[in-house]
Design a protein around this nucleic acid. Sequence first.
DNA 1: ATAAAAAGTTGATTTAAAACAATGTTATGT
DNA 2: ACATAACATTGTTTTAAATCAACTTTTTAT
Lengths: 229, 229
Amino acid sequence: MRISKKRNCSDCIQKCDIHDVLSKVNGQDTTVSHLHAQYKKHDIICKQGTEVTHAMFLVKGFAKMYIEGLNNKNIILYLLKPPAYIGLLSFFESPKYSYSVTAIEDCEVCFIELDLVKKMYIENHELLLCLNKAFGKSVSTIFKKIISLNQKQIRGRIAENLIYLSEIYSANKFHLKLSRKEIGEMAAISEENTVRLLSEFAKEKIIAINGKEVEILDMSLLKKICEVC
Amino acid sequence: MRISKKRNCSDCIQKCDIHDVLSKVNGQDTTVSHLHAQYKKHDIICKQGTEVTHAMFLVKGFAKMYIEGLNNKNIILYLLKPPAYIGLLSFFESPKYSYSVTAIEDCEVCFIELDLVKKMYIENHELLLCLNKAFGKSVSTIFKKIISLNQKQIRGRIAENLIYLSEIYSANKFHLKLSRKEIGEMAAISEENTVRLLSEFAKEKIIAINGKEVEILDMSLLKKICEVC
DNA sequence: ATAAAAAGTTGATTTAAAACAATGTTATGT
DNA sequence: ACATAACATTGTTTTAAATCAACTTTTTAT
């Protein structure tokens, strides 16, 4: 973590739900400020097993949300794309993070006092519904992940993750911020197998890959592979 | 599902949080009644993909909570022991169940109008915290499950589940309501391997098994196997 | 009481993926 | 500019678990 400084909500490039709520309550010009922190690539934003001290909101930059497993092997559940709540799953009465979040590129995170969020969560119906909805969505995504990781073959899992990355970047051609190892961690696959499968897909003209540049050439076939394997 | 009839909360053998809250608000004698339904073993209490219509509370009998996967293979996340909320995870703004719950023995379930729960959830701080806490706990359990299913060997996973069953039944000797196939589904293992491993443990005098009767003879060794594999 | 279905078990083979080893390429630090 | 570390790739072998087949036992239905 690098620079940390207080920033007024009205100066923020993102307008989170909390800001929206405060705006409605206090008028357009809110005087609330929160700590904003800058993270460089590979910096840990929150660490599994540590105590929750703030609600966090990703303002800028992508991050990965993962569970730290055995033998230094992680499983990446999903990527966080701004604007997004970080650590939301632990907001619901869990004193410690049960997963970690790490920047995969330079990020900016807004730290909101937990007490303020809790107070507003209880007092504001709209915010409560909003946060709960985001939460519920995370959970159902995780259930699908469980089935995928356990019941699909690695080829289908890599295909699935390529589709996911395409959706996250809203493009069929994108620049990866993840290493091969990390792509593998998204699918619970070894790095060597990840490379092999990516090469296979390239050879089959399903994707084109050049270093970190990836382009999906045959999305419909990728989707078929995803369903069948 | 068999018999369904309205039952007054004060007549219920369990006193859920909602009853507790209503008691405090309206005095000890609440006139609220909810539909109670009886389920036989194997009856589906809620089905993945169907719409949430009520909040449900398990009053009597054990049930399994599972995700329906590919090729008719389920993964059982955990067992529900009364008193317990059913379908709580879908209460948080998910219109459809993302998992299923099925009775593993005769069960009684209380159906609470969703609107009532939502109203009380918003109006009552204590209930909100209570439900959120139960929810957060489910989620962190699921994360551990993900690591276990993906990173442990099947021997460790079976050991882990035997320990879990012992905890659920609060005894080192218990009568299984689950089939071998279902035990396997708790650990994402085939039925044949499940039987093999149970036989191995019996052979090694770690457990004694006689049909559905299971007794854990060496809990500390089981825990070691669970950690190492 | 009996037949059929479901569940449990055992043995053997196949398969999918990890693991291991070695080499090459790219990025980073000095 | 160069050395080192990190990342990527390729080839091969090993391993863990699934799958398949066949049989036995238990439970359920008639």
